[in-house]
Nucleic acid binder design. Structure first.
Lengths: 113, 113
DNA sequence: TTGCGTTATGCATACCTGTGCATTACGATA
DNA sequence: TATCGTAATGCACAGGTATGCATAACGCAA
């Protein structure tokens, strides 16, 4: 029997400085790490470059230590890289998110018929 | 030591018919049950009557069995009551939500430094 | 049958999120 | 120094969410 009703949710981590790290931002950071470019990362996520740039701007503004470094110009036009703080933040979120997925599945099973 | 970072989230239940029951709708249903009036419930939640009415409309439209019954006119001008299905839905959501709160607290504790 | 307060609903509006387009700034390398 | 593709940023706009105002429909009770 497939479950009639399903439990869904969204998860994010808030820092003392008001920073917010949720699903969208983490995916963006991961793509940046993988592709080395903000514009490529935005494209891979079907997200507008305009908005992706706004996200990283707010991330870096709100965090004590920046999560990533953007470089305009240079070889290939520019590039983007995660800082150690950025990599750590992504890892922490992923750990929490994995347990969250499990939680949602468990709760869906617990729902009445 | 208080936690520097905290885990937050939102939770909702989706039905096979596309119905959605989240925090806001559940609070509205609870207030309706307590106060017996949609207009009073909206007021108690600092929500516009206009929007509260739209919420219950979409809830009843998407659910096979309506979650509540609205009556215009009559003694006192009208009144609103939860159906049995509505009460059951609220109870199911609250059960899940209680465990979710616990989950968030646990995950916050697990976060690094 | 009139009055009352509630439900019912349209219309205009504001905010937030996210898109799309256009243009400029940048800087290593050829 | 000229080139090239990326980062940086302004402006206009669309869609969802939520508000506020105005007005009609409703139906029991006095």
């Amino acid at each position: 029997m497939a479950a009639q009703f399903t439990v869904h949710g969204r998860l994010w981590i808030e820092g003392p400085d008001g920073s917010i790290l949720g699903h969208g931002r983490v995916e963006l950071l991961e793509q940046i790490e993988a592709l080395g470019s903000l514009s490529a990362a935005a494209g891979a996520l079907d997200m507008s470059y305009r908005y992706a740039w706004k996200l990283v701007k707010s991330m870096n503004e709100h965090s004590d230590t920046p999560l990533l470094k953007l470089n305009a110009g240079g070889r290939g036009g520019g590039h983007a890289t995660l800082t150690e703080a950025g990599k750590a933040a992504v890892a922490a979120y992923r750990r929490t998110d994995r347990e969250f997925e499990q939680f949602l599945a468990d709760q869906t099973d617990k729902l009445p018929g």
